[in-house]
Nucleic acid binder design. Structure first.
Lengths: 95, 95
DNA sequence: TAGTTGTTTAGCTAATTGGCTAATTAGGTT
DNA sequence: AACCTAATTAGCCAATTAGCTAAACAACTA
C-alpha cells in the first residue's frame, strides 16, 4: 500500500503529472504536451499513479480525463509524518 | 536531490531503518538484527540513505554508528507538501 | 462500415535495483 | 606481526523499471 505510493512518487515525471493535476483535471493528451516522452510512456506513468490510487481516470467520450485524488495524497503525507513521528504542527492547539 | 529522497523512501527496508533510527542511534550490526537480509545488503541500504542525506554514519572505533538526520527528513516532508500545494495546517493562524 | 482521433496494450531493450557470497578494509587486541 | 570483529566493497544474478515503436482498442463521425 504505502510502498506503491512512495514508488509512484519516486519518479520526477510522475511528480510533475501530479503537480499539473493539482491545478486542474486534464486528459492524457493535454498532459503529454508538458513532456517530451511518448504517449505510451506517459500512459504507463498514469497507470502507476492509478495503482497507487493517487489519480483517477474517467473516460469522457473519446478522452480520458485524469483527476488528482487530493485526499489520498494528503493522507499519504500525514501517514509519512506519523511513520517518522514528525511534528504535525497540528491546529489542535485551539483554546 | 528530491528524487534521491523519494527513491530512498520507496523501499520498505529503508523506511524501517529510518523508523528504528528515529528511536535512537544504532550501529550497523544492531540494525541488522531487525532484518532477515544479510549485512552487505543492509550496508547498501545505508549508503542509499546516506546519499539522500537522510542518515549519517560515524565510525566509533570498530563500529559505525548511524544517526537519523531528522531535519532533512522533516524538510523533505514540507517540500513535498509545498510541491503539491497541500494544506500545512500551519500554526500561523494565531490571530 | 470505414475512417479518424485519443489512448492503451504488447513486446522489446538498456539501465537500475535488491538480494546473495566472497573478498577486502578498518580498527582494536594479543 | 598475527588475529579477531565490524562493516563495506566487488562481482554476480534475477527482477523491475522507464523508455521506445508498432499494434490494438474505444468512441465518435461520415
Amino acid at each position: 500500500m504505502a510502498t506503491k505510493v512512495y514508488k509512484a512518487l519516486s519518479d520526477p515525471t510522475r511528480r510533475k503529472i501530479l503537480q499539473l493535476l493539482r491545478e486542474r483535471d486534464m486528459n492524457a493528451g493535454e498532459i503529454s504536451e508538458y513532456f517530451d516522452s511518448t504517449k505510451p510512456t506517459l500512459s504507463r506513468h498514469f497507470s502507476v499513479l492509478q495503482e497507487a490510487d493517487l489519480i483517477q481516470g474517467n473516460r469522457q467520450g473519446n478522452f480520458i480525463i485524469y483527476r488528482l485524488n487530493v485526499t489520498v495524497l494528503e493522507e499519504a503525507m500525514w501517514a509519512m509524518m506519523d511513520m517518522f513521528k514528525l511534528e504535525h504542527r497540528g491546529n489542535d492547539d485551539e483554546k
